[in-house]
């Protein structure tokens, strides 16, 4: 934690931590405490008076069918994104780990979507699936399927799931691939000598050995699906049609900035905060079991 040898006591360290601390207090701790405080307030229709109502906002949220729908929708959305992006990245990494010589070429070709902003990824997918001119919508039309994510809620959900998963595959691939490359080749060779085929080696050796990576990625993907997909949803569907793609983070934004429901939005923020804190704790509890790269 601290060096055995250090510098003589002086006021210098305070100046060194001051910028970071100042920003932390002004833009993190103070707003967070405000969010908690506001989550217990109710404002009247004209914004003239506020009343302190303790946990009423929370009780109201959890008895509000719309909020619960959004919650379930978010869970479904993150489960789908996590599953699609993790499983396809795992397949790609396992195969890239097998091919000799070309592995890093494949890595280069697979990692760059990481750099694409979520909102930009949304624009790309939206263009491909555009009901009037999109190329994929056109092909779907050829085979007799009428695609329209502007009016069909399931289509819209599928579209944002695909766009979000597409963007996340490279991140997952990178960690899976690094984890697999770190497994000693002698283990794999020993199993091969014992007569285990590629599939068997994968399930009995590689998969168990990268399980810490998988766990880490599981948490990271949930965080991603909960928070970082705002850009995709905002750019592609704006939560619609008829709230079909409204996830928690979008609802906080929408209720706070568009609906101007101060207390309700703050209460939702606090719930999200609790989710992040929970995920972070889970992450850190298992940190020591993480593999070394």
């Amino acid at each position: 934690m601290l060096k055995r040898v250090h510098f003589k006591p002086s006021p210098l360290p305070y100046f060194l931590v001051a910028p970071q601390l100042l920003i932390t207090i002004v833009f993190f701790l103070w707003p967070a405490s405000q969010a908690i405080y506001q989550s217990m307030l109710v404002e009247d229709a004209f914004g003239l008076s506020t009343e302190f109502v303790w946990f009423n906002n929370f009780i109201e949220l959890f008895s509000d069918g719309f909020y619960l729908d959004t919650l379930y929708r978010t869970l479904f959305f993150s489960a789908a994104v996590t599953f699609i992006s993790l499983s396809s990245a795992l397949i790609f990494a396992a195969l890239a780990d097998r091919v000799i010589g070309a592995a890093t070429t494949y890595r280069t070709l697979l990692i760059w979507p990481y750099a694409v902003a979520p909102a930009v990824a949304g624009a790309l997918w939206m263009f491909m699936f555009d009901p009037t001119i999109g190329i994929v919508a056109y092909f779907l039309d050829l085979v007799g399927y009428d695609w329209n994510h502007r009016v069909n809620g399931s289509h819209a959900m599928l579209l944002v799931i695909l766009a979000s998963s597409w963007k996340q595959i490279s991140y997952n691939f990178l960690f899976f691939f690094a984890g697999m490359q770190a497994i000693p080749k002698s283990l794999i060779e020993a199993a091969a000598i014992d007569g285990a085929g590629p599939a068997r080696r994968f399930w009995t050796i590689i998969f168990p050995l990268i399980s810490p990576v998988t766990f880490f990625l599981l948490v990271m993907n949930i965080v991603y699906a909960f928070f970082d997909t705002f850009g995709i949803i905002h750019a592609v569907t704006k939560g619609g049609p008829a709230k079909a793609t409204e996830i928690l983070i979008y609802k906080v934004y929408n209720d706070g900035f568009i609906g101007l429901d101060l207390g309700g939005s703050a209460a939702q923020s606090v719930i999200l905060m609790i989710i992040v804190i929970g995920l972070t704790i889970v992450q850190f509890r298992y940190i020591e079991r993480r593999v070394e790269y």
């Binding site: 705002f230 706070g256 101060l262 939005s265 703050a266 923020s269 999200l272 905060m273 992040v276």
Partner: peptide, 9 residues
Amino acid sequence: LPVEVRILP
């Protein structure tokens, strides 16, 4: 405390 959970304040 990612920015998303404390946007309004």
